[in-house]
Design a protein around this nucleic acid. Structure first.
Lengths: 219, 219
DNA sequence: CTCTTATGTTAACATTGTTTACATATAAAA
DNA sequence: TTTTATATGTAAACAATGTTAACATAAGAG
């Protein structure tokens, strides 16, 4: 249907675009159908010609959100050109920073409300294209190279993910004054994870002073 | 005002009790004022004679929630009779199990929605009576005894807390099949935290086989 | 005994997501 | 070309929710 005075022409895409941009700025609770209809200049029920419900729209927002999240957090983790520990460290920083910059989207992606659509998205996706899959592959790579202790790679990945997720959650959900300390906390968390996961069988290389400082403590 | 046909007599306490019990079983979203008025046999606006708003009631629920949470998670952490590492380990288990058993209350306490009341509660409380304070004290005790590495005790405590909070969140918010693995994951997480925090200056005692197994790896 | 106060009810509101009946314009069919 | 079907939009109404205002009831103070 073409654009004219009565028909918008590309309303579905515009709903998604506006909602997606909204979630980048404001709280999910504030995203009402009225916001969307006002922003598009349509009636409050127009959305039902393109989505079966508000949740159906939210589901698409979440899919878009995972595309963004994965595209931000996983590339460095997959970049075989860099030392493995550097990739872990950089990704930790990127993960926490993205959560800080997009707290509402982060909560939407990893909260319970739409868990079913997250799990559906994760299960459909090839491991080679989502962030958790990238983490698991990196952990397996680390074990194969003797950098990380041999262990169940799924559980090891979950432990790492949970650590970052917990830190991100405390920061964006306003636990104490944790947000002010976030940079230092990521460093501390990384140091702790490294101590827990790293094997001592192989000499580990890093180009990042902070990371090599952890690996080669001064006597 | 005494109880009779018209006046309930102890309505405020009953609202709180019903709401608190409700949150132990069902989702927060399902706790509507209608639920409370139906359960007490009163009208839907009776609640406004005892609370200025629904949020005001939720705030009291959260205070009660923290009392319960703290009373479950902090005693063992404070129990100087037990070896310190054992107290950390047992508390980790208790923390995760409590979150699993009371997911709705856990989310309410540590989510963002009522962050302001959590922070208010934490700031009013003496460090000696809340769970995070107990953790921080235990960390300081560990540093003084040479069991844990000397470090900023606040940051070290936040790293530990974030790890548990992240694991709890993944479990109760349905991230993958993580809930099924929760017992093993707590063990793995604990092992990792221990590797990150423990000092090597002192011989560390534990009465728990799993924990001493970590501390004294077989050659 | 009167009257103030605490506590409860009823009726109404605005906001929310949603559905139903109707309107409009393009595409397809005759 | 005219008719019809389909896609897309609107208007009006719903129920559920939190909330408020006006009224009702009962206990205690004076």
């Amino acid at each position: 249907m073409k654009r004219n005075d009565y028909h918008h022409g590309n309303l579905k895409e515009e709903f998604l675009k506006i909602a997606f941009e909204f979630i980048h700025k404001e709280d999910v609770d504030k995203l009402t159908l009225k916001v969307l209809s006002d922003a598009t200049g349509t009636s409050r029920s127009a959305i039902y010609r393109h989505f079966s419900s508000k949740d159906a729209l939210m589901e698409e927002i979440i899919r878009l959100g995972f595309e963004e999240f994965d595209s931000v957090t996983s590339p460095i983790l997959r970049d075989q050109e860099q030392p493995l520990v550097d990739r872990f460290y950089k990704t930790s920083k990127i993960y926490i920073n993205w959560a800080k910059e997009n707290p509402n989207l982060y909560r939407l992606l990893f909260g319970r409300r739409y868990a079913y659509i997250r799990e559906e998205t994760l299960s459909i996706k090839d491991e080679s294209c989502d962030a958790f899959g990238a983490l698991k592959h990196a952990v397996e790579e680390g074990q194969e190279k003797g950098i990380l202790k041999k262990d169940d790679s799924l559980k090891q990945s979950v432990v790492i993910w949970a650590s970052l997720h917990g830190l991100a959650s405390l920061i964006i959900d306003g636990f104490m004054n944790v947000a002010e300390l976030s940079d230092e906390l990521v460093d501390d968390m990384f140091r702790s994870l490294l101590a827990g996961c790293v094997s001592n069988k192989v000499k580990i290389i890093s180009t990042i002073p902070f990371v090599s400082g952890i690996l080669e403590p001064k006597p």
